[in-house]
Amino acid sequence: MHSFVYRLNTLVTFSVLLLGVLCAGASILDSFNSHSVRAHVEVLKVNRFRRQLNGNDEVALTLNISVDLQSAFTWNTKQVFVFVAVEYETPKNALNQISLWDHIIPDKEHAKFETQVTNKYLLIDQASFLRIPFCIKNLIIWNMKEHGSNLRGKKIELVLHWHVMPKTGRMIQDKIGVSSFQIPEAYT
């Protein structure tokens, strides 16, 4: 009556269903984990601040980063991807987000650390090429002084983001603002 294939089918269906329920359960349990992340990031030094040939401002920084992400880890956590990004507003863009440094934390033991780094990705602004032509005695003069440089004297916010990547289930993203920094007026 109940052949081998029939039994195997029932068994496989049941185990797949059970596995699915377990995965969903693990993911749901994750959302009860309230994490309190402590982090401190500050800019130690501006290594380079210049204007590229295409008009974009470029900044290289040294950062001091100390984070404690141990509370973000649960038994369903495969890794935590952490990165520091700057956020600022310019006349052209309502929001600029630029990642400066990132790191993959494989387990809870490595989730608390302090490090000094130079930015892995350069802070390159997107210059506003608002070239305003105006004529003086038949000479067209392009005024791009006002809008070319966005970063001189700019106050930027440093934000620490973390992305909890689970063994299975929903991914969790969160962030905290860590500090703000004013970029110098003068190019180096």
Binding site: F81, F83, P91, K92, N93, A94, L95, N96, Q97, I98, S99, D102, I104, Y121, Q126
Partner: peptide, 22 residues
Amino acid sequence: HRVIKLHERQGTGEVDILTKGD
């Protein structure tokens, strides 16, 4: 891939996105 840079325009909300594989 993951978004590492983002510029969102004033007004229109158009975005420029740069991505990178971890």
